[in-house]
Amino acid sequence: MESQVFSQTNQCLTFVMDEEFFAVEIDSVREVLELTTITRVPRTSEFMRGVINLRGNAVPVVDMRCKFGMPKAEDTINTCIIILEIESDNEVSLMGALVDAVREVIEIRAEDIQPAPKMGTAVSPTFIKGMGRQGDEFVIILDIQKLFSLHELTTLHATRDLVSQAEVEAAPVA
């Protein structure tokens, strides 16, 4: 794999969806939250689950199962929201990724990462940085910066801004 894509050792947060293991590089993860109330926003993409209140800020939450075309599943005690930092147009935005369960932070050596397969995963190869190995298991390392199209990011930003504006207008006047 190209050396500019992966450093010598990569720390990744691993998580599970539909019994498949995924990872995102830890430097794009802000925090992991237990499942909380998600407010549905009308007329948004199917994969857009809604928004959450994160310390006074509206943060869009994407159902990653839906984004990847996986079957829907009931939320469980293990369902989590990973708060990710996404960069677009030289601006960093927060986005929540709803996943079945978070596993752990692991280190994957660059030599243990292979190129994305052309087929055989639930996720488009466009979104995959590589396939890592952890013991006998493969871990799909996602490229968070390529996960959403410009149109989808614009929609996420507009949803966040719309909810934030509604909160401002609904706030009591002092």
Rank of each mutant, 00 (worst) to 15 (best):
I140N: 02
I128R: 02
K118H: 14
V29Y: 01
F21N: 12
V41W: 03
M131Y: 01
T37W: 11
E87N: 10
I140W: 01
C80S: 08
V99L: 14
V92L: 15
Q11G: 03
D143E: 13
K129F: 10
I38W: 02
E34T: 11
Q114T: 14
M17L: 15
M64K: 05
R133A: 06
K67Q: 15
D18I: 04
R43W: 11
L94S: 05
V92A: 12
L142F: 05
D18H: 07
F22R: 06
V92T: 14
A97Y: 01
V16N: 15
M64T: 07
P42D: 02
T121R: 03
E91S: 04
V59S: 00
E74L: 13
E91P: 00
I106M: 10
V5P: 03
V61Y: 03
R55K: 13
D63P: 09
M119A: 06
A110I: 08
C12V: 15
I128K: 03
I113H: 00
T37P: 09
I81W: 00
G132Y: 01
S149H: 14
E34F: 13
D75M: 10
N57P: 00
I140L: 05
N10V: 12
I140M: 07
R43P: 09
N53V: 02
I106D: 04
E19T: 02
G132H: 00
L94M: 12
T121W: 00
Q145K: 05
K67N: 14
K118R: 13
G50P: 12
V105Q: 08
C66Y: 06
V29T: 03
M131G: 01
K146Y: 09
